[in-house]
Design a protein around this nucleic acid. Sequence first.
RNA 1: GGCGGCGUAGCUCAGUUGGUCAGAGCAUCCGGCUCAUAAUCGGAAGGUCGUCGGUUCAAGUCCGACCGCCGCUACCA
Length: 506
Amino acid sequence: MSQFYVTTPIYYVNAEPHLGHAYTTIVGDALARWHRLLGDDVTFLTGTDEHGLKIQQAAEASGMTPQEFTDSIAPKFSDAWERLNITNDDFIRTTEPRHKAAVAELLQRCYDAGDIELDTFAGKYCVACEEYYQDEELVSGPNGDDLCPIHLLPVEYFEEENYFFRLSRFEDRLLDWYAKHPTAMKPEHRGNEAIGLIKSGLRDFSISRTSLDWGIPLPWDDKHVTYVWFDALTNYLAAVGFGNKSQDYTERWPADYHLIGKDIVRQHCVYWPAMLLSAGVEPPKGWAIGGWLLSGGEKMSKTSGNVVNPLDLIDDIGLDGFRYYVLADTAYGNDGDFSWDGLVNRYNSDLANNLGNLAARVATVVAKKCDGLGTAPNPNSPLGTVAATALEQAAAQWDDVQPSKALDATWSLIRASNAHLETNEPWKAEPGPEVDLVMGDALEALRIVAILCSPAIPDTAQAVWERIGMPGKVVDQRLPQAATWGQYVPGASVIKGDALFPRIKT
RNA sequence: GGCGGCGUAGCUCAGUUGGUCAGAGCAUCCGGCUCAUAAUCGGAAGGUCGUCGGUUCAAGUCCGACCGCCGCUACCA
C-alpha cells in the first residue's frame, strides 16, 4: 500500500468560507477519494491559519481574545467541510501545540543552517493600515507626499529589526531541484511561471515581527514573533508529526500534492522548498496549482457583491450537484466562471439527463422485462471495451489532477450505455436471454460508473450502487480490479426509487 | 517596462515530439424512439485554427513581427 498525502491551503479565519475555499477543498477531497479507491493510505489535510495582525485586530474589535476569536471561526470551516461531504483525515489549526512545535523545529533548523539572520527592515508604513507599502503602491498627495493607497494618509518611514530568511541564496538550488523534478508543478504553464519567478532573482524575506503579539515566538529570540509564511506553510509538516520526537514525519512526508491557488504560487513553490532545503527536509513531490472560480467573469469580492456562498447552493441544487459542477465545469489550473445558468446546464445535461435518466430507464426495463431482478452482463459486450477505456483515461486524468477530464472520461461510459440501450431496444423485445444480457450490460455499466464517479459525487454513487442491488459500499471497492467488466452479481432486486437528479426547469 | 500565459466551431474547451488535426461536450436544426426525469439515440450544420510574413515536400502544430486579452512583478494569510 502506498502513501498518498494531499493538502489544501490552510484558510485564514478572518472571513467565512466562500466558494473559492470550497472549490479547492472539493478538488482535494475528490483526489483523496480517488486514491482511497486505488487502495492508497491517504492523508488528506486541511485546516485554518489563525495568527497575525488581522486576527488580533478582529478579536479586539469583537471584544474577544485572539484565541477565543479563532475558536469561534475555525468551526465554521470544519462545519462547512462536513456539509460538503469532505473527507479530510485531519484538520490542523496553527494555534495547536503540534503546529507550534513544528514551526519552532523548522525555524531552528534554518537558523542553525545559517539561513536566518537579523537585519533591518525599512519601509514606508501606514499607521492606520499597520502595513508597509512599496513605493509603487503609494499614491501621490497634493504636496507630493506619499500617501497610503487605502487611507490616503501620509506614510511614515520606519525601521525595524527583523529576522530574514536568506532566500537569495537558494536560486541555484531551487532551479536544480526543479530541473530534476520537471513535472512537480501542475499544470505545466503554472509551473513555468514559478520557474520564471526564480530566474528573475530572489530577495530575502522577513520572517519575524516585534510589533506583533499574536503569533509563535522565535525559539532563540522571544522578542520576535514568527511572521506569516514560516508559520502558515509549516502546517503541512506539523500534521505528519514534524517536530514531535515520538513521531517519524517521513512516514508520510514528502507530500504528494499541495493544492494551492494561483495567488500563492510564489510562497508555495519558491519560499517553501527553499525553507525545506535549508532545514534538510525533502520538498514535496508535487504542487497542483488551481485557478480561481470567478463569479460573473470577475473575481469574487465583497465590494462587487458577487460572493457566492457554497452552502446556500447545496440547498438549491443538492450537494452532489454542486460538487459535480465545480469539478466538471472548470479545467483545474484555469479560471472558471461560476454562474447559476452554468450550474443548471451541467446539472440537467450530465446528471439528470445522462446519469439519472440512465439509472431510471434501466430500473424500469428490468422491472418490466426481468421481473425486477438484475441479470448477468454479456462478457463480450462492446460496453466492456468502453468501460476499460473509461477507467484507463479517468485514472490518467485523476493522476494528472484534472478532475474535469476524469469525469468526462467517466461520462463517456454513461453515454455509451444509453446508446447501447437504443441499439438493442430491450423494451421492444420479449423477455428472454437476449434482453437479460442487454440489461445485464446496463447494470454492469452502472456498477462501474458508480465506482468511477464516487470521488466526485459520493452520495449518488452509493445510491446507484444500492439501487442496482450491489451489497456493501462503493467506497470499499478497489481499483482497478473492481472496475473490470463482468462482476455484476445477478439476482438482486433492482430498485427504481425517486429521480436521482430531478430536472431543474429553466 | 520585465517575466509568463492565452487567442481553434454560437459557448466552454481537446489537439504529446509538424504529415487522417480540423475534434469533443453544450447549444441549434432535421430525423428515429417512446423503456426513461419532454429524458434518449442517429444525422446535419457550423471554424481561412487572432493577423501578416518565414522555414518545410508538409504547420493550429516550429520561427519572426504585429493585434487583442489575462496573470505575476515580492513580505497585505
